[in-house]
Simulated assay, not measured.
Amino acid sequence: MTNQVRESAIIPDEALGLRFDQALAIMFPEYSRSQLKKWIQSGSIQLEGEVVTKPREKVIPGMSVAIEAELEIVEEPVAQPIDLNIVYEDDDVIVIDKPAGLVVHPGAGNTDGTLLNALLHHCAELEALPRSGIVHRLDKETSGLMVVAKNANAYTSLTEDLKAREVVREYEAVVMGVMTAGGTVSAPIGRHPTKRTHMAVVPTGKEATTHYRVIERFRAHTHLRLRLESGRTHQIRVHMAHIKHGLVGDPQYGGRPRPLAKSSDELAALLRRFPRQALHAVHLSFVHPETYESMSFSSPLPDDVITLIKTLREDREENLA
Rank of each mutant, 00 (worst) to 15 (best):
S34L: 03
L279N: 03
V175K: 12
I73R: 03
T204F: 09
L47D: 09
P259S: 13
A25P: 06
F218C: 03
P259W: 05
D303N: 05
G17R: 13
S294P: 11
I134M: 14
Y212S: 06
P106W: 02
P300T: 02
D83L: 13
S186A: 12
D13V: 12
D139M: 07
L120D: 11
F286L: 14
I10Q: 05
D97Q: 10
D13H: 11
I306C: 00
G101T: 00
E127G: 08
E207G: 04
K54A: 06
A25G: 08
G254N: 07
G182S: 05
T142P: 02
P188Q: 09
E229T: 10
T194K: 15
E14V: 02
L301E: 03
L84G: 08
H122I: 09
A278S: 01
R33N: 07
T233A: 12
F297Q: 05
I86R: 11
E57L: 02
H211E: 11
K310W: 02
Y292P: 01
I94P: 09
E166V: 11
K244V: 04
A208N: 13
A181C: 08
V248T: 00
G246K: 00
F20Y: 15
E30C: 04
E68L: 13
E141S: 03
V287R: 14
L279Y: 03
A124G: 10
K58V: 01
N110H: 15
L308D: 03
G177E: 07
K163V: 01
H211Q: 10
V185C: 08
E160H: 12
V5G: 10
I306D: 00
A187L: 04
R276V: 10
N319A: 14
Q235A: 07
D303F: 00
